[in-house]
């Protein structure tokens, strides 16, 4: 009897710890919808999902790196560079101050998409090489590539033939339709970007759960030495995880250019915070070896729901910073607790 009670209490504590982030964040959302009942309108939910999509795709990429007990500070700037290259290649050919004046007709969209991915993959592979081969801490190497990507992006944006350093804008209609359009289901408009996000999440779920790479990734993240001894090619695993992250950042840059409709040197600033926060809120542990794709998706959505709702109820911007900061601190505190409990 006594024993059963203790057992139950332990289970309740475990349960609370396991789902604490969701419980707290759901509580916030419920509070918001009590203050403003129209918050839970279908349109708003789609808006939140749309806003979460590009950052969610970034989070899908960096989640793998966090599982490897690493991190990625270069996400925002790398994505910004990718977005700038995309923007330059999809500008409307009737726009006078376009980046490539010699461009007389719209390129097939695959060109900017591949260019965007190529940019992000190059930086990601440099990161991967630094971590796997040079044994650098991910924090340091990605801090370096963050600066490099930013500098390269500024140079790129400033070499416009119009002699200005302005944001690249005015994109062709096909690009806007494909990357930022909607799918009409009867009268309901589903933003395509949400579908891309969910599609990529599904693919990543398969990679994480059904492939050798996925298993190896968790093994390396949990205990690199043990993984090496049991025959996992550690360098190859790390490089592949970074490669996948690069592809996802490139896709995100492509889609973000369409979402924000013009790309400047500042585009992407601070996105790594959102991507990493989404992972942490979604239960990807900074200690490595722990995390799920569904967690990352939910983390990304919840984070944007918070951002959206703070503006929705008109919270003073300075309090918004404080609230977001508290959420990150709380998420990590719980993450650490879980880790201790596991031990």
């Amino acid at each position: 009897m006594q024993k059963g009670k203790v057992f139950n209490r332990q289970r309740v504590v475990d349960f609370l710890l396991q789902y604490a982030m969701y419980i707290i964040l759901l509580a916030i959302l419920v509070t918001v919808s009590i203050i403003r009942p129209n918050f839970l309108a279908f349109g708003n939910i789609l808006n939140i999902l749309k806003q979460a999509s590009t950052k969610g795709i970034l989070a899908l990429g960096c989640a793998g790196l966090i599982v490897l007990a690493g991190t990625d500070l270069s996400i925002g700037r790398v994505m910004g560079f990718s977005a700038a290259v995309t923007a330059a290649l999809v500008q409307s050919v009737t726009y006078k101050s376009r980046y490539f004046p010699q461009m007389a007709q719209d390129l097939p969209l695959i060109v900017p998409l591949l260019a965007s991915i190529a940019i992000a993959v190059i930086f990601s592979l440099i990161n991967g090489f630094g971590v796997s081969k040079l044994k650098m801490h991910a924090f340091i190497i990605t801090l370096g590539t963050q600066l490099i990507a930013f500098g390269a992006n500024c140079l790129f944006i400033e070499s416009q033939p119009s002699g200005t350093a302005q944001a690249l804008s005015t994109f062709n209609q096909t690009f806007k339709d494909v990357a930022a359009g909607d799918l009409m289901l009867g009268t309901v408009k589903i933003p395509l970007v949400v579908l891309y996000f969910l599609g990529l999440a599904a693919i990543m779920w398969v990679v994480w759960n059904k492939t050798r790479l996925g298993k190896n990734m968790f093994a390396v993240g949990g205990n690199e030495e043990a993984a090496r001894v049991s025959g996992v090619n550690v360098v190859r695993t790390i490089m592949l995880v970074y490669l996948i992250a690069g592809v996802l950042y490139g896709i995100a840059g492509f889609l973000e250019a369409a979402r924000i409709q013009s790309v400047g040197a500042n585009t992407g600033l601070g996105y790594e915070t959102d991507a990493i926060s989404a992972c942490v809120i979604g239960g990807v542990s900074f200690s490595g070896g722990v995390g799920t794709i569904q967690g990352v998706v939910i983390g990304a959505v919840i984070l944007q729901a918070i951002n959206f709702s703070l503006n929705f109820i008109g919270v003073n911007p300075y309090y918004q910073y404080i609230i977001r900061g508290l959420i990150i601190v709380l998420a990590v505190a719980i993450d650490v607790r879980k880790y201790i409990v596991k031990k």
């Binding site: 918050f39 979402r259 959206f308 503006n311 929705f312």
Partner: peptide, 14 residues
Amino acid sequence: QAQAQDAINAVWAA
């Protein structure tokens, strides 16, 4: 731009 977009997106919804 992106921050303004997210902010207006929410304020307009409200």
